[in-house]
Design a protein around this nucleic acid. Structure first.
Lengths: 105, 105
DNA sequence: CACACTATAGCACTGAGTGCTATAGATGAA
DNA sequence: TTCATCTATAGCACTCAGTGCTATAGTGTG
């Protein structure tokens, strides 16, 4: 699990403030850094949460898996706590949580 | 890599047709199956493609990684062909490709 | 010059994810 | 009732994606 993003982002703010302090404009890179700070924090997903999410979307494990481009077997394991989603998988799940299955269609 | 989705989806169409044949409406599950067929196919991502994608979005590897909730180290490896994204990572990348970095913010 | 950011590189490690098969509970149709 | 289909669970072996860390070099900026 990425652990440095939060502090990295905070560091970015600090630097961004410094950039703003300097008269002139923000360049694209700085904009991006600022954006990164605005990223929705990713929270852990419990097995229950994942299942609730899927049923909320009226999807079977198979269909749900198809949306996420993973195997149905993996979705089953997530829901039974045998594996826990991380990185990109977790990001995708939290995206579905906030915006629905449609956004990943 | 999931390999059965395509044929599963085709099977779903067949069944959906049967469902429609039966007088009445489609239920939510069937709808979902139909939706699954409409999923944008995921194409492989070459290292060049990934780098082009990131630079198109004006993001450093670090910022790009933050968006995808992975480590900067991994992005570097993707771009150098040391690792190839799969499953959820690939899905996320193709999402950014089609809709831009903002959608995963 | 020094400082900060960026990217590359290498290495050891681990567990997420794959692929397969088998089982059993629903559900629904003939 | 039986037959068939979809669904979910389970177990197992395997592999490589992803992590975490550190060090290096290039670039640009004050």
């Amino acid at each position: 699990m990425p652990s440095k993003y939060r502090s990295n982002a905070l560091a970015a703010v600090h630097e961004t403030a410094a950039d703003l302090h300097r008269v002139g404009g923000m360049d694209q890179k700085t904009m991006r850094k600022f954006d990164a700070l605005c990223l929705t924090p990713i929270q852990e997903m419990t097995p229950e949460k994942i299942r609730a999410l899927r049923t909320r979307e009226n999807a079977s494990q198979t269909v749900f898996a198809a949306y996420l481009n993973v195997t149905p077997s993996l979705v089953s394991k997530w829901e039974r706590g045998e594996k826990r989603p991380q990185g990109a998988s977790l990001k995708l799940l939290s995206l579905v949580d906030r915006k629905g299955l449609e956004v990943v269609a």
